[in-house]
Simulated scan of single mutants.
Amino acid sequence: MIEAAAWVLLIVSAWPALVLAIELLAAQLPARPIPTGGSPSIAIIIPAHDEAASISHAVDAARSAAPAHTRLLVVADNCSDDSAARARAAGAETIERHDPVQRGKGYALGFARRHLADDPPDVVIVLDADCAIADDGIAHLAAAAQALGRPVQSAYLMRPRPERGALVGLSGFAFLLRNLVRQRGLARLAAPALLTGSGMAFPWRAFAAAPLDSGDLVEDLAIGIALARVGLAPAFLGDVMTLSDPARRSATLTQRARWEQGFLRTARRAAPPLICAGRWPLFWLGLHLTVPPLALLMLVDLGALLLLGATSVPFAILAALLGLLGLLLLLSWARFGRRQLPASQLLLIPFYMIWKLPLYAAALLRPEKRWVRTDRD
């Protein structure tokens, strides 16, 4: 019975690590080309909840990066400040929504969709108020969405900010692994991309079909899964970068807590039917969702190693798999993450895992069920 339990523990702990290793390996291959072409009409939606300090800059940045005649729509959602007035002063079309019960970005996007429905654009781009799409990425994203007829997600990354400290830098590297490296892996494996909330483009047909009106903690993830199920699987366009500045250390932990709790909850609900759907893209998307956040995965697998005992065959198999995973993570850092994280800070990964222990304890004891805005500077 002890030997059988050891093999069961090996399978449970090795499965997510193996899925992650395959994605990291696939990410090293050249990216699949995405067709682009044409000049679709574009509407950029910027949801704003108490963003008075940054909304003018967000509007100016979006306007300067967007093609001429792009429609710029700010949704001032349940604001207690003058975000709406500042957005109008910056020249953006602005609508206001007040509903203290239905709170969250999904409801703001649904409100914007109803506003645009009388004169819909060819493509809708969603951009958070603290983000900017680099270079000519807006036109590139819109053209790709129009050509594919499906949503397209850019690489949404955090700018390196060394002054924020090493733990925020490590969080930014984890963000890069999820939003760039693993997205590349999903694309090479012909699986749907994940929608990550900002820098995502929808042809109007997909935007009209999306289940937007929701207070889900990870509404972007849920929207992408729902669209993939109806044949509108998001694609990944890693050549386009959507950039944001990281929050302070305490706010970063709060932000990660909200996202990781929402991810685990959505994954638990969505992964089994996707795996059983009988189609490869959905099957792999379901497998992808079985991989917990990286720090949690490493904590679980290291705990499994301690339980297995150093002399057992399952221990040797899991140790070899974790060694391979470590090498692939190092390779991914060398290829994609050098600017995000100095080599010396890789030694702090164990402290990063300890830093996140309270997050996982809170997920068990006080699970977050409400959308919470991340504090900005």
Results as ranks from 00 to 15, higher is better:
Leu180Val: 01
Pro30Ile: 02
Trp333Thr: 03
Gly286Tyr: 05
Arg279Trp: 08
Thr196His: 13
Leu294Thr: 04
Leu237Lys: 03
Trp280Asp: 02
Pro203His: 05
Ser64Ala: 15
Pro342Lys: 09
Arg150Val: 08
Leu167Thr: 10
Arg258Phe: 03
Ile138Gly: 07
Ile22Ala: 07
Gly197Asn: 09
Pro273Asn: 10
Ala53Arg: 14
Leu297Pro: 00
Arg373Asp: 00
Gly238Met: 02
Thr70Gln: 13
Phe336Ile: 02
Phe175Lys: 11
Arg205Asn: 11
Arg268Cys: 10
Phe315Glu: 09
Val181Lys: 01
Arg269Ser: 14
Thr254Cys: 13
Pro40Leu: 07
Ala58Pro: 09
Ser83His: 05
Ala361His: 05
Ala270Met: 14
Ala270Pro: 10
Val152Tyr: 10
Leu294His: 08
Lys105Tyr: 13
Asp118Thr: 11
Ser41Gly: 11
Ala61Pro: 08
Gln153Thr: 07
Ala108Arg: 04
Pro358Glu: 13
Gly110Thr: 02
Gly323Glu: 10
Asp301Ile: 01
Ala92Trp: 08
Arg376Val: 13
Arg373Met: 04
Phe263Met: 11
Ala90Trp: 01
Leu180Ala: 05
Val291Leu: 06
Arg159Ile: 08
Leu328Gln: 09
Asp136Trp: 06
Ala6Cys: 13
Gly199Gln: 05
Leu364Thr: 11
Pro192Phe: 04
Ser344Glu: 14
Ile22Trp: 00
Leu227Ser: 13
